[in-house]
């Protein structure tokens, strides 16, 4: 009787505990605030959006809004959210965007945006801010019909310009109503004035934009220019190599504490026996 009751209590407690853990993990997975590019030893799938390596990369999902921040605005967009994965090998970083789009169109496009340097930049093309001196943004822009990525800069509306030095490669694959587009660049570049520098371990700001290149009945593009799906700033981090020094320090501390105990108890025993 007693035993079966104890058993039941422990089953209930176990189920409750698992539920709490599951709920907290699920809640955490829904609330992406950062893209975490995992470190891979070799075989970075730099130009293959469908490589098997991507399935093991951690995924973050970010909601997208119709761009209503500045004119010309758009009130409704096709793409409601984007899934983002990242991998790096210590030299190059690859970022994979994945989103649902019912049709493949030549003008389908996507962009990543980063702040450059230490100065904060507004997510809307680094537009000027009233009380804060802002910096430029670095934009990596992919368009289906161009089949390449443009490495660009902006510092305010109407200033978007492709760089002379193009550092970003990319490729898009459309399958079963889903776009997978990859952007690849070296973590660091010599041009720190214009390019976002990615140092493993540091969090930098990232934003996303996606255009559905579908045309309406009169042949006009539904989404173009500032009429697109956007996010504001989130975080991006290339994961640093694993750092085991914390375990080493902890083991040292355990050893010291145990040694201290040993010495104290030996002293106490000697004292009480004398």
């Amino acid at each position: 009787m007693n035993r079966s009751r104890a058993w039941r209590v422990s089953v209930v407690a176990g189920v409750a505990l698992s539920a709490v853990i599951l709920a907290s993990v699920a809640g955490w997975a829904q609330e992406s605030v950062a893209v975490r590019a995992a470190l891979v030893k070799d075989n970075l799938p730099a130009e293959d959006p469908t490589a098997a390596a991507w399935s093991s990369a951690p995924v973050s999902e970010f909601p997208l809004s119709p761009q209503v921040h500045w004119a010309p605005r758009i009130q409704e967009v096709t793409v409601k959210s984007v899934k983002v994965r990242g991998l790096h090998d210590g030299q190059q970083v690859s970022i994979l965007l994945e989103w649902a789009d019912p049709s493949e169109d030549p003008d389908d496009a996507a962009a990543l945006e980063f702040m450059v340097g230490d100065k904060k930049a507004h997510f809307a093309h680094g537009q000027p801010m009233g009380q804060v001196e802002g910096g430029p943004v670095n934009i990596w822009f992919w368009k289906n019909k161009d089949a390449k990525v443009l490495d660009m800069n902006a510092k305010g509306f109407g200033t978007l310009k492709a760089q002379d030095q193009q550092d970003v490669k990319g490729k898009g694959v459309y399958q079963n109503g889903t776009w997978k587009v990859i952007f690849t660049r070296s973590l660091s570049t010599p041009d720190a004035e214009d390019d976002a520098q990615i140092k493993p371990g540091d969090f930098i700001n990232i934003a996303f934009a996606i255009w559905d290149g579908k045309r309406d009945a009169s042949g006009d593009l539904k989404e173009k220019g500032s009429q697109k799906a956007v996010s504001s700033w989130w975080y991006f981090r290339a994961e640093p190599p694993p750092d085991y020094s914390g375990y080493l320090y902890a083991a040292l501390a355990v050893g010291l504490a145990a040694g201290f105990q040993f010495v104290v108890i030996r002293k106490l025993k000697k004292g009480s026996s004398s």
């Binding site: 914390g246 902890a250 083991a251 501390a253 355990v254 050893g255 010291l256 504490a257 105990q261």
Partner: peptide, 10 residues
Amino acid sequence: FPLLVGWQTY
């Protein structure tokens, strides 16, 4: 006690 010290350090 040593485990607690280790955890704190970690």
